[in-house]
Structures are given as C-alpha cells and as structure tokens.
C-alpha cells in the first residue's frame, strides 16, 4: 500500500500571539513550532494501516519554508513514517495553493492508495485543504473521521451535529481527514528519532509541483487582536445571593435570555 500523510507545522497552542507592526500577520520570532495536533492522528492512522497490511510505505509531505518545516517531517519519520517530501515555499499560502501543491507532489510519486491529513490546522482553522486536495487528485474524501478501516473496502465514519455519525464506504483511492478520537498517536522513541535523521527526504520547489506563488484565492490582511474584555464583575455572597444577583444581571443588564 502506498500511503501519504500531509502535515503542517503550526505555532504551539500556548503561543502568545503578537501582530506585526503593519498588521499583515503575526510576529513569528520566539514561536515554538509543532506538528499540527490533528496531523498526529493522521500519521498514526497511516502507520497503523501499514502495520496491519504488513507491507507498504508511509510518505509524509509538507509545504513551507524548508529550514523550519522539515522538523515536522522528521517528527513524523521518528514516529515511523518511511520518507518525506518538503515543498519549499513562503509560509502562509492559502488552502487552495497549499492543496494544489500537495496534490502535485503526490502525483509526481505515481499511484497512491490513501492520503491522510488532519481535519484542520489549528493556526488558520480553515478545514479546507483535505477537500481541495481530494478534488485536485480526483478522488473522494471524508473529513472529521473518527473511525477508519480498510479491510476490503474502505469504511470511514465521521461525527456530525447532535452526536450523530455518518458511515461512508469508499471504492479506490481517497483522502481521509482525521479527527480527535480516531486513535492515540504514538510517541517518537529515541531509536526512532535517531533513525529519522537518516530517512530519505526529497526537496521540491513550488514550480516542481506545477504551481506558482501567485495562484492563491484568498489573502489574509488587516490582522487585529480581539478587543480587550471589560474587567470581570465578581458576584459575592452566599450561594443563594450569588445565584439571585447573577440571574438578575443576566436578565436585566446583559439581556441574554
């Protein structure tokens, strides 16, 4: 089985966000970069699938400034992925260009069976790349996947509103976007980390994937920090008095009910 996993490097959740003076983006000095948490589920599912089949390869692919984003590929390779592809480009491409470039890189490798991704990246929260990638590759997709199996046909389950679940059956190659709950990602072992350093890593340019930096569809601008919240109003007294005052404030001051 030829399996691909598309991953993204994102600022750690705890990062304090500061804006550039011209508000064209965030200040990136001092940021701790990590693999997008949802992509860890994608890598884990790919490794599990390769293990269950007893054969096959897991190739991790990413796009961004190669000197930085290669770390995310090495992390995935330390978890167990066989090799990596980095598409060297500026950061913050839009989902359209990102997906098109990833599709181009995957197509260069010939036929594939499954592409795993995370359901979204926690930096821009667009949740768009998996679907555009699937469209570009001409294959079906399932997003927000919490259950997956590939014995015979492929079955993927996703959770929707009200705790309902949609169960899909897929014929042939596809893109599967992983959600929390799909599995428990393994940690990279020390020998794994040592081995990862020697695993093959292919470097591509955006042009190698058939794309150009100008081929974006949306651009983010005029970044703003959220308005300062007014200071919290503390409500004192015993439980009865607190509850009474709160209910009164919610109904008469905040008028939310």
């Amino acid at each position: 089985m030829k399996i691909f996993v598309c991953i993204k490097q994102v600022p750690d959740t705890e990062t304090r966000i500061q804006l550039k003076a011209d508000r064209s983006g965030i200040e990136e000095t001092g940021i701790k970069w990590v693999m997008n948490p949802y992509d860890e589920y994608a890598v884990e599912e790919a490794l599990k699938l390769r293990e269950s089949k007893g054969a096959g390869t897991v190739t991790v692919v990413t796009i961004g400034p190669k000197t930085r984003v290669t770390d995310a590929l090495r992390t995935a390779m330390a978890m167990g992925a066989d090799d990596g592809i980095v598409i060297d480009s500026a950061d913050h491409l839009d989902p359209y260009l990102t997906a098109k470039a990833l599709a181009g890189a995957i197509q260069k490798e010939g036929a594939f069976d499954i592409v795993f991704t995370g359901k979204l990246a926690i930096d821009d929260n667009a949740a768009s790349v998996p679907q555009i990638l699937a469209e570009s590759l001409g294959v079906p997709h399932v997003t927000m996947v919490t259950k997956f199996s590939a014995s015979g046909t492929i079955a993927a389950e996703r959770e929707v509103e009200g705790g309902a679940r949609e169960v899909f059956e897929i014929q042939g190659p596809c893109v599967i976007a992983a959600n929390k709950g799909l599995n428990t990602p393994r940690y990279a072992s020390l020998p794994g980390i040592m081995k990862a350093k020697k695993k093959p890593l292919k470097e591509l340019t955006l042009a190698d994937t058939g794309m150009q930096a100008s081929q974006i569809k949306v651009r983010l601008k005029n970044f703003e920090l959220p308005p300062e919240k007014p200071k919290v109003k503390m409500i004192a007294g015993d439980a009865g008095a607190q509850a009474k005052e709160l209910v009164q404030l919610l109904l008469e001051e905040a008028k939310v009910l």
């Binding site: 679907q131 570009s136 569809k217 949306v218």
Partner: peptide, 23 residues
C-alpha cells in the same frame, strides 16, 4: 458553518477554481 457545509464548500469552491473564507 456546519459539519456539512464545512465539508462541502471547499470541494465545490475548488471545482469552480475559487476560494473559501471559512468560519
């Protein structure tokens, strides 16, 4: 925005060579 539209819109937008502003 819902689990359906968030799944559907990017795919349709790609088909029309267009962009999505999600969420």
């Amino acid at each position: 925005s819902s689990s359906l539209t968030r799944d559907l819109f990017p795919r349709v937008a790609a088909r029309l060579d267009s962009g999505v502003a999600s969420d």
